[in-house]
Amino acid sequence: MENFIETKNLSFRYSDQDKDLILDNISLGIKQGEFVCILGRNGSGKSTLVKTFNSLLLPSEGKVYVNGMDTADEKHNFEIHKQVGLILQNPDNQIVSSIVEEDVAFGPENLGLAPAEIKYRVERALNIVGLESFSQNITHKLSGGQKQKLAIAEVLAMEPQCIILDEPTSMLDSFSQVEILKILKKINKKYKITVILVTHSTREAMFADRAIVMEKGRIAVDTKPVDVFSDIDLLNKFNLHIPQGIKLLLEFNKKGVSLHLSDLSVDGCVASIEKFLEDKNAVN
């Protein structure tokens, strides 16, 4: 299958005078339908990278292709924006209108669609994120979590092939975080929309199928999330948050007990510990 997003020797610097490369010779392919998370410390280039995926930022060197279209070619801008939606950290700054349904309608209105089609898309988008009963509400009175759901609805109404999110939950409490991630998972699995998520959170990264770790503008690791988070050296090297399940595993290791964790979720840890406790043959 062809890559939906493809970068070839992508490098980026903010201005020609800048010696520092924010992105350094990145060649990467993301297929349609993948759920990718991008990790790395602040300054590693994660945000910059994803902003080249919807032609918000153009490569200083190299190329970025979205569904075969070269992002550097202006005539593709409109189509690229239609196919790739972008959601940033602060939901407040993305909301255009004072009323929820009018805000979601903004995107389809820009596409020049007929009123009936716009109404249909707005209702559908609000339904998917669970805000259907809020359609007449005033946007600035929504909670943080609701605002981010609204931001997702705004993008969904464009019927994109791919959604990029740059630390969408960093300002939200943990319950809202999980809600948002579940919506993203649903969008990915049910509607086959590619999801690219930039995050610091281990818990969120575990929702993805693929984890890319960036360091100093380069891709350092590209594998499954569980492989990233069960590698303690890797986590320390890139200063990533160590999940508690792994910390527990380390404690067991220190006592000479080897506990196998293939799944870092709570249930996965419970299963492994259950096995350990029930295994009559295990000797200290």
């Binding site: 999940p243 508690q244 399940g245 527990l248 709570v266 249930d267 840890c269 419970v270 510990i273 259950e274 406790l277």
Partner: peptide, 9 residues
Amino acid sequence: EITKIMKKL
């Protein structure tokens, strides 16, 4: 998470 794990056990 540790607390959740212990509770489930």
